[in-house]
Design a protein around this nucleic acid. Sequence first.
DNA 1: CGTATAATTGACCCGGCTCAATTCCAGTGG
DNA 2: CCACTGGAATTGAGCCGGGTCAATTATACG
Lengths: 187, 187
Amino acid sequence: MHSILSFLNPDLPEDKILLEDFNSKIQFKSFQKGRLLYRPGSRCNHLYFVQKGLVRASYFKKGKDVSCHFTKEGQVCTAIDAFFQRTPTQYQLEFLEDSDLVEISYSDLHELFERYPKFNNYGRELMIQEYGILVERLNHLQFYTAKERYAFFMEEHRDLFQRVSLGHIASYLGISQETLSRIRNNQ
Amino acid sequence: MHSILSFLNPDLPEDKILLEDFNSKIQFKSFQKGRLLYRPGSRCNHLYFVQKGLVRASYFKKGKDVSCHFTKEGQVCTAIDAFFQRTPTQYQLEFLEDSDLVEISYSDLHELFERYPKFNNYGRELMIQEYGILVERLNHLQFYTAKERYAFFMEEHRDLFQRVSLGHIASYLGISQETLSRIRNNQ
DNA sequence: CGTATAATTGACCCGGCTCAATTCCAGTGG
DNA sequence: CCACTGGAATTGAGCCGGGTCAATTATACG
């Protein structure tokens, strides 16, 4: 079973049906490191579950590439607002490692929403999760120094630090690469 | 009809039913300036539509009262994450003016979600809207100077500037009150 | 092994914060 | 109607976190 659907209990007949239905709609896809999942302006017609690998979301701002999201195994990956709003995304999604994804289309997902009351809150749940992450980032940016933000990141995502380049993390944290380098080494 | 439900077409029989159902579930409430809708730690069991008035959401951070949201007439008001997650809110909601609200309970809203497919996306829509606002605030905080953020705010919410004290706006923008005062007067 | 990309280090500067002192109001009571 | 008072806004002085620019070094890849 996909960790995403861990709220289901396959012993319950109704959940089993949901699960089978879900399985009939998904596809497995693999991508190589460096490939792009979306470019700015793309339509986001699918939701992805990362089974293996790492995806970086970013956008261009004042001539610089700014990271805004990292998605690793076990997490859901798409441009969440564009996906649910059916608008082109402003982000670029890029694989930082060779990755395996599970793909489901917007329309199939909606069929599941309508068919299974239990599944129905799922989209909202996703949004709430992302919302929470954003609230925390805003909070950090507004009230904590670069050094503190680095410390928070290391607490929460130590593993990513090995897998993502310094510059990408710096822009994610809203710090210049030079400053992050100094912070990391000074102490 | 409530502007909130403007996506409905009362000429359609099915929308008419939805609307009647909705109307049977709501209550009208009035609050005086200075009163609190929620304190930190409150359960948010209701969603509110502001018909008249102004509500400020805030929280305490490092000994200071920090504004994070203003809700004026025509907008939806609650601690959106806490409401949908059924957890206590961390925010305080305070009326800055005498206000009239429409109230609907979480359980009644969910009944509507389950009863009307058309209404079902509504909760997600709400989340997406709030998400978008947050994305923009983060963007501003990360890339624009205090002066620029003030300019954005004035472009978008000039009316609020008359209705909200300088200190509240400053903390909302992530600027000290002194700096905002200087910005406002220097030019 | 050479070239390109990422990371480090130094020098310099400035936006915006803090602390402290006034000044400006709006509301209250005599 | 005016004086008093507490909160909000303004203004000044001084400081520092973190940005930019530029040069150097480390790392990865064909």
